Computed example of a mutant assay.
Amino acid sequence: MNILVAGGTGFVGSYLVPELVERGHDVTALARDPSEADFPESVELARGDVTAYDSIEGAFEGQDVVVNLVALSPLFKPSGGKSHTKVHLGGTQNVVNAAEEHGVGKIVQMSALDANPTGPTEYLRAKGQAEQVVTDSGLDYTIFRPSVIFGEGGEFVSFTKVLTTPYVTALPGGGRSRFQPIWIGDLAPMLAAGVEEDHDGETYEIGGPEVLTLAEVTKLAYRAEGKSVTVLPLPMAFARLGLTAADPIPFVPFGSDQYRSLKLDNTVSNNDIGAFGVEESDLTTLAEYLGVEDRP
Protein backbone atom coordinates (compact mmCIF):
# COMPACT_ATOMS: atom_id res chain seq x y z
CA MET A 1 0.00 0.00 0.00
CA ASN A 2 0.94 3.65 -0.40
CA ILE A 3 0.83 5.14 3.09
CA LEU A 4 1.21 8.78 4.10
CA VAL A 5 2.27 9.33 7.72
CA ALA A 6 1.50 12.88 8.83
CA GLY A 7 3.85 13.73 11.67
CA GLY A 8 6.08 10.98 10.36
CA THR A 9 9.31 12.33 11.86
CA GLY A 10 7.91 12.73 15.39
CA PHE A 11 8.32 10.33 18.31
CA VAL A 12 5.65 7.82 17.26
CA GLY A 13 6.28 8.31 13.54
CA SER A 14 9.98 7.54 13.90
CA TYR A 15 9.00 4.02 15.00
CA LEU A 16 5.92 3.51 12.83
CA VAL A 17 7.49 4.51 9.50
CA PRO A 18 10.26 1.84 9.65
CA GLU A 19 7.69 -0.71 10.85
CA LEU A 20 5.54 -0.05 7.79
CA VAL A 21 8.54 -0.18 5.46
CA GLU A 22 9.59 -3.51 6.96
CA ARG A 23 6.10 -4.81 6.18
CA GLY A 24 6.59 -3.97 2.51
CA HIS A 25 4.66 -0.70 2.17
CA ASP A 26 5.58 2.43 0.24
CA VAL A 27 5.71 5.16 2.88
CA THR A 28 5.79 8.95 2.68
CA ALA A 29 6.65 10.85 5.87
CA LEU A 30 5.04 14.29 6.04
CA ALA A 31 6.51 16.80 8.48
CA ARG A 32 7.19 20.50 8.88
CA ASP A 33 10.92 19.80 8.58
CA PRO A 34 11.67 16.28 7.35
CA SER A 35 15.28 17.03 6.39
CA GLU A 36 16.86 15.38 9.44
CA ALA A 37 14.76 12.21 9.32
CA ASP A 38 16.74 8.99 9.68
CA PHE A 39 14.67 6.57 7.63
CA PRO A 40 15.33 3.82 5.09
CA GLU A 41 16.16 5.21 1.64
CA SER A 42 12.84 4.01 0.24
CA VAL A 43 10.89 6.46 2.43
CA GLU A 44 9.69 9.55 0.59
CA LEU A 45 9.82 12.83 2.50
CA ALA A 46 7.24 15.59 2.16
CA ARG A 47 7.36 19.02 3.76
CA GLY A 48 4.18 20.56 5.10
CA ASP A 49 2.32 21.90 8.14
CA VAL A 50 -1.09 20.36 8.79
CA THR A 51 -2.40 23.73 9.97
CA ALA A 52 -1.72 25.12 6.46
CA TYR A 53 -3.84 23.16 3.96
CA ASP A 54 -2.03 24.24 0.81
CA SER A 55 1.30 23.04 2.19
CA ILE A 56 0.13 19.43 2.65
CA GLU A 57 -2.56 18.86 0.03
CA GLY A 58 -0.24 17.62 -2.73
CA ALA A 59 1.28 14.88 -0.56
CA PHE A 60 -2.05 13.00 -0.51
CA GLU A 61 -2.08 12.26 -4.23
CA GLY A 62 -1.84 8.52 -4.91
CA GLN A 63 -2.03 7.48 -1.25
CA ASP A 64 -4.18 4.58 -0.05
CA VAL A 65 -4.07 5.34 3.69
CA VAL A 66 -3.12 8.34 5.80
CA VAL A 67 -1.96 7.98 9.40
CA ASN A 68 -2.43 11.21 11.35
CA LEU A 69 0.10 11.40 14.17
CA VAL A 70 0.49 15.17 14.36
CA ALA A 71 0.08 16.26 17.97
CA LEU A 72 1.16 18.61 20.71
CA SER A 73 2.11 17.16 24.07
CA PRO A 74 -0.50 17.43 26.84
CA LEU A 75 2.35 17.41 29.38
CA PHE A 76 3.57 20.92 28.55
CA LYS A 77 2.02 24.23 27.55
CA PRO A 78 1.94 24.77 23.77
CA SER A 79 4.52 27.30 22.58
CA GLY A 80 5.29 29.27 19.46
CA GLY A 81 1.73 30.47 18.93
CA LYS A 82 0.38 26.93 18.64
CA SER A 83 -2.71 25.61 20.40
CA HIS A 84 -4.29 22.21 20.81
CA THR A 85 -7.36 23.44 18.97
CA LYS A 86 -5.35 24.71 16.01
CA VAL A 87 -3.15 21.62 15.67
CA HIS A 88 -5.42 18.76 16.71
CA LEU A 89 -8.77 20.01 15.43
CA GLY A 90 -7.71 22.31 12.59
CA GLY A 91 -4.89 20.02 11.51
CA THR A 92 -7.17 16.97 11.45
CA GLN A 93 -9.76 18.86 9.43
CA ASN A 94 -7.10 19.71 6.84
CA VAL A 95 -5.85 16.11 6.75
CA VAL A 96 -9.39 14.79 6.23
CA ASN A 97 -10.16 17.38 3.55
CA ALA A 98 -6.97 16.59 1.65
CA ALA A 99 -7.62 12.84 1.93
CA GLU A 100 -11.14 13.23 0.57
CA GLU A 101 -9.94 15.55 -2.22
CA HIS A 102 -7.41 12.98 -3.44
CA GLY A 103 -9.46 9.82 -2.98
CA VAL A 104 -7.54 8.39 -0.02
CA GLY A 105 -9.65 5.54 1.30
CA LYS A 106 -8.74 5.36 4.98
CA ILE A 107 -7.40 7.34 7.92
CA VAL A 108 -5.78 5.98 11.06
CA GLN A 109 -6.15 8.68 13.70
CA MET A 110 -3.99 9.02 16.79
CA SER A 111 -6.23 10.31 19.55
CA ALA A 112 -5.98 10.10 23.34
CA LEU A 113 -7.64 8.42 26.29
CA ASP A 114 -10.74 10.30 27.43
CA ALA A 115 -10.86 12.44 24.29
CA ASN A 116 -14.16 14.29 24.51
CA PRO A 117 -15.47 17.44 22.78
CA THR A 118 -16.58 18.73 26.19
CA GLY A 119 -13.62 17.39 28.19
CA PRO A 120 -11.97 19.21 31.11
CA THR A 121 -8.79 20.26 29.24
CA GLU A 122 -8.22 21.95 25.90
CA TYR A 123 -6.13 18.96 24.84
CA LEU A 124 -8.93 16.45 25.47
CA ARG A 125 -11.56 18.73 23.92
CA ALA A 126 -9.51 19.25 20.76
CA LYS A 127 -8.78 15.52 20.49
CA GLY A 128 -12.47 14.73 20.92
CA GLN A 129 -13.51 17.30 18.33
CA ALA A 130 -10.89 15.88 15.95
CA GLU A 131 -12.39 12.41 16.39
CA GLN A 132 -15.75 13.84 15.35
CA VAL A 133 -14.19 15.26 12.19
CA VAL A 134 -12.83 11.80 11.37
CA THR A 135 -16.03 9.87 12.13
CA ASP A 136 -18.17 12.38 10.23
CA SER A 137 -15.97 12.13 7.14
CA GLY A 138 -16.50 9.85 4.17
CA LEU A 139 -13.31 7.93 4.97
CA ASP A 140 -12.93 4.51 6.49
CA TYR A 141 -11.27 5.09 9.84
CA THR A 142 -9.57 3.48 12.81
CA ILE A 143 -8.95 5.54 15.94
CA PHE A 144 -6.33 4.76 18.57
CA ARG A 145 -6.60 6.15 22.11
CA PRO A 146 -3.34 5.24 23.89
CA SER A 147 -2.32 6.05 27.41
CA VAL A 148 1.03 7.83 27.76
CA ILE A 149 3.73 6.39 25.50
CA PHE A 150 7.33 5.89 26.62
CA GLY A 151 10.52 5.01 24.81
CA GLU A 152 13.67 6.51 23.34
CA GLY A 153 12.81 10.02 22.16
CA GLY A 154 9.62 10.23 24.22
CA GLU A 155 8.71 12.87 26.79
CA PHE A 156 7.04 10.90 29.55
CA VAL A 157 10.06 9.98 31.67
CA SER A 158 11.79 13.31 31.10
CA PHE A 159 8.55 15.05 32.10
CA THR A 160 8.90 13.65 35.61
CA LYS A 161 12.43 15.13 35.80
CA VAL A 162 11.17 18.58 34.83
CA LEU A 163 8.40 18.35 37.40
CA THR A 164 10.54 17.05 40.28
CA THR A 165 13.96 16.99 41.94
CA PRO A 166 15.93 13.96 43.16
CA TYR A 167 16.05 12.86 46.80
CA VAL A 168 13.10 14.97 48.06
CA THR A 169 10.36 16.41 45.88
CA ALA A 170 6.78 17.62 46.08
CA LEU A 171 4.06 16.51 43.67
CA PRO A 172 0.48 17.80 43.40
CA GLY A 173 -1.72 15.56 45.50
CA GLY A 174 1.30 13.44 46.34
CA GLY A 175 1.50 12.18 42.75
CA ARG A 176 -1.60 9.99 42.97
CA SER A 177 -2.57 10.51 39.31
CA ARG A 178 -2.55 7.10 37.60
CA PHE A 179 -1.11 6.21 34.21
CA GLN A 180 -0.99 3.03 32.15
CA PRO A 181 2.16 3.67 30.10
CA ILE A 182 2.83 1.70 26.93
CA TRP A 183 6.19 1.22 25.23
CA ILE A 184 6.42 2.61 21.71
CA GLY A 185 8.02 -0.66 20.60
CA ASP A 186 4.78 -2.43 21.54
CA LEU A 187 2.45 0.24 20.17
CA ALA A 188 3.99 0.70 16.71
CA PRO A 189 3.12 -2.84 15.48
CA MET A 190 -0.48 -2.35 16.65
CA LEU A 191 -0.69 0.90 14.70
CA ALA A 192 0.72 -0.87 11.65
CA ALA A 193 -1.89 -3.60 12.05
CA GLY A 194 -4.54 -0.89 12.23
CA VAL A 195 -3.32 0.30 8.84
CA GLU A 196 -3.20 -3.14 7.23
CA GLU A 197 -6.16 -4.96 8.75
CA ASP A 198 -9.90 -4.37 8.68
CA HIS A 199 -10.49 -2.39 11.85
CA ASP A 200 -12.73 0.11 10.09
CA GLY A 201 -15.07 2.11 12.29
CA GLU A 202 -13.34 1.03 15.49
CA THR A 203 -11.93 3.10 18.35
CA TYR A 204 -9.35 1.31 20.49
CA GLU A 205 -8.17 2.18 23.99
CA ILE A 206 -4.58 1.00 24.36
CA GLY A 207 -2.69 0.72 27.64
CA GLY A 208 0.42 -0.95 28.96
CA PRO A 209 0.68 -3.97 31.27
CA GLU A 210 0.50 -2.06 34.57
CA VAL A 211 -0.98 1.00 36.22
CA LEU A 212 1.49 3.37 37.90
CA THR A 213 0.97 6.55 39.86
CA LEU A 214 2.97 9.64 38.98
CA ALA A 215 4.88 9.14 42.25
CA GLU A 216 5.78 5.58 41.26
CA VAL A 217 6.92 6.70 37.81
CA THR A 218 9.07 9.39 39.39
CA LYS A 219 10.72 6.91 41.74
CA LEU A 220 11.41 4.52 38.86
CA ALA A 221 12.93 7.26 36.74
CA TYR A 222 15.37 8.30 39.47
CA ARG A 223 16.08 4.71 40.51
CA ALA A 224 17.25 4.06 36.94
CA GLU A 225 19.90 6.73 37.59
CA GLY A 226 20.90 5.21 40.92
CA LYS A 227 19.08 7.89 42.91
CA SER A 228 16.27 7.73 45.42
CA VAL A 229 13.45 10.18 45.92
CA THR A 230 10.92 10.82 48.67
CA VAL A 231 7.66 12.29 47.40
CA LEU A 232 5.89 14.84 49.54
CA PRO A 233 2.30 15.90 48.86
CA LEU A 234 1.67 19.38 47.49
CA PRO A 235 -1.95 20.41 48.19
CA MET A 236 -3.90 20.55 44.94
CA ALA A 237 -5.21 24.01 45.85
CA PHE A 238 -1.63 25.34 45.94
CA ALA A 239 -0.84 23.60 42.65
CA ARG A 240 -3.90 25.14 41.04
CA LEU A 241 -2.95 28.66 42.15
CA GLY A 242 0.66 28.31 41.09
CA LEU A 243 0.02 26.72 37.69
CA THR A 244 -2.83 29.08 36.87
CA ALA A 245 -0.57 32.03 37.64
CA ALA A 246 2.00 30.53 35.27
CA ASP A 247 -0.38 30.57 32.28
CA PRO A 248 0.86 33.89 30.83
CA ILE A 249 4.55 33.23 31.57
CA PRO A 250 6.08 31.85 28.34
CA PHE A 251 9.19 30.23 29.84
CA VAL A 252 7.23 28.19 32.42
CA PRO A 253 6.33 24.86 30.74
CA PHE A 254 3.25 24.15 32.87
CA GLY A 255 -0.07 25.94 33.30
CA SER A 256 -3.69 25.51 34.34
CA ASP A 257 -4.37 22.90 31.66
CA GLN A 258 -1.56 20.76 33.04
CA TYR A 259 -3.01 21.18 36.54
CA ARG A 260 -6.37 19.88 35.31
CA SER A 261 -4.58 16.99 33.58
CA LEU A 262 -2.91 15.99 36.85
CA LYS A 263 -6.35 15.62 38.44
CA LEU A 264 -7.28 12.94 35.90
CA ASP A 265 -6.30 9.29 35.67
CA ASN A 266 -4.90 8.16 32.33
CA THR A 267 -5.92 4.50 32.35
CA VAL A 268 -8.04 2.39 30.01
CA SER A 269 -11.51 1.19 30.92
CA ASN A 270 -10.95 -1.85 28.71
CA ASN A 271 -7.55 -2.63 27.20
CA ASP A 272 -8.15 -3.32 23.51
CA ILE A 273 -4.73 -4.79 22.76
CA GLY A 274 -6.42 -8.17 22.23
CA ALA A 275 -7.85 -6.87 18.95
CA PHE A 276 -4.27 -7.08 17.63
CA GLY A 277 -3.46 -10.51 19.04
CA VAL A 278 -1.52 -9.09 21.98
CA GLU A 279 -1.76 -9.98 25.67
CA GLU A 280 -0.60 -7.83 28.58
CA SER A 281 2.08 -10.41 29.41
CA ASP A 282 3.61 -9.68 25.98
CA LEU A 283 4.12 -5.99 26.79
CA THR A 284 7.18 -4.25 28.19
CA THR A 285 6.82 -2.56 31.57
CA LEU A 286 8.33 0.82 32.30
CA ALA A 287 10.58 -0.80 34.90
CA GLU A 288 11.88 -3.28 32.33
CA TYR A 289 12.53 -0.51 29.83
CA LEU A 290 14.46 1.49 32.44
CA GLY A 291 16.41 -1.56 33.57
CA VAL A 292 14.76 -1.61 36.99
CA GLU A 293 13.24 -5.01 37.72
CA ASP A 294 10.96 -4.32 40.66
CA ARG A 295 8.19 -1.82 41.23
CA PRO A 296 8.87 1.08 43.62
Rank of each mutant, 00 (worst) to 15 (best):
T284V: 15
E288V: 11
L187T: 00
G185R: 04
S269R: 14
M190E: 03
K77Q: 04
G48F: 08
V134P: 05
H25V: 00
L283G: 07
D247N: 14
L290H: 03
V217S: 02
E280P: 10
T230E: 13
R176Y: 09
K77C: 02
P40V: 11
G185K: 03
E293A: 15
R240F: 12
V70C: 05
S147V: 07
N271C: 09
A239L: 08
D200C: 05
T285K: 12
V134K: 01
E288C: 10
L234H: 11
S79L: 11
G277W: 01
I249R: 06
I107A: 02
V211G: 01
D186E: 06
L20S: 00
G138L: 07
G58A: 13
F76D: 01
Y141K: 09
E155I: 11
V43W: 06
L20Q: 00
S281M: 06
A245P: 09
V148F: 14
H102N: 15
E196I: 09
K77F: 03
H25A: 00
T121C: 05
P120G: 06
V87Y: 03
V229R: 07
E280V: 13
Q93C: 08
N97C: 07
V87L: 06
F144R: 07
E41G: 15
V104G: 02
A246G: 08
G48D: 03
P146Q: 04
G226Q: 04
E216C: 07
W183S: 11
N266H: 13
A115W: 01
L241G: 15
Y259K: 12
A98C: 09
L220A: 01
R260N: 09
D114K: 15
L264A: 14
L234F: 14
E205L: 08
R240G: 12
N116S: 10
S73F: 02
E196V: 10
E288T: 15
G81E: 03
E225I: 00
D33W: 11
P120A: 10
N94E: 02
S137E: 02
T135K: 13
R295Q: 13
V134L: 01
S177W: 09
A193M: 14
G154H: 05
P209K: 12
I56T: 06
L243F: 14
V66W: 05
V217D: 00
R295M: 13
T169S: 15
D247A: 03
T92D: 01
S256V: 03
D257C: 12
G175Y: 05
V211M: 04
F179H: 02
D272M: 10
H102C: 08
G7Q: 01
